[in-house]
Design a protein around this nucleic acid. Sequence first.
DNA 1: GCATTACTTAGCCATATGGCTAACCATTTA
DNA 2: TAAATGGTTAGCCATATGGCTAAGTAATGC
Lengths: 105, 105
Amino acid sequence: MANHLDTFFAALADPTRRAVIERLTEGSAPVSELHAPHDMALPTFMKHLSKLEDAGLVRTEKKGRVRTVHIEAAPLEAAESWIKRQRQVWEGRLDRFARIAEKPN
Amino acid sequence: MANHLDTFFAALADPTRRAVIERLTEGSAPVSELHAPHDMALPTFMKHLSKLEDAGLVRTEKKGRVRTVHIEAAPLEAAESWIKRQRQVWEGRLDRFARIAEKPN
DNA sequence: GCATTACTTAGCCATATGGCTAACCATTTA
DNA sequence: TAAATGGTTAGCCATATGGCTAAGTAATGC
């Protein structure tokens, strides 16, 4: 089960990249606009975008000299559902404990 | 907002560490037992445990020579809620699009 | 009390990551 | 067509990461 969760979570483990995702939930944007608020060189920023793209969190398309970036929801769902599953098993265990505690005989 | 999400997501970005979390949802366990199924040296495995502990995903306590590891739910909730929020904003945007599409005048 | 068990500490290694500059296309725009 | 705009490519650097071995310590078990 060493699936794509590696790249998904790694992509989200950086504040710059999470900020890009947050920005993209409000709509697609060209690279230069996404880059503007981040105090780093463009090539550095492009590396972050590549990671997001490798993780499948983002899709890009180039028209003329402008590359536009779009968010991709599926991986977010995959990551969320993994976490949710863990919590459910864990909470289910707590529930069983609680039930045992409530029936003390 | 460069909070603890960095360490949370980084901790989950490795299959060994996710496997440990999955195992721990079924109950706490000593280091040696958690290590057993993983084909790597113990010190290497301990580094993974440290990352989980640094991320707050796990808590440990030592009794005698045995260190027992317990899962900690709060960070899982934090990570899950971040992802959920992104999805909600993104989906909200889609909904607005849909509403606009439905009212074409 | 000696051996085993269960980690710990220390140190080394290769690769990955996150950052930079400099120089180079390729489209627009003036 | 020359200049500006929007990326891209190449290459360098420091630190982090994930792996190892070897040797040490501290409880338990025999």
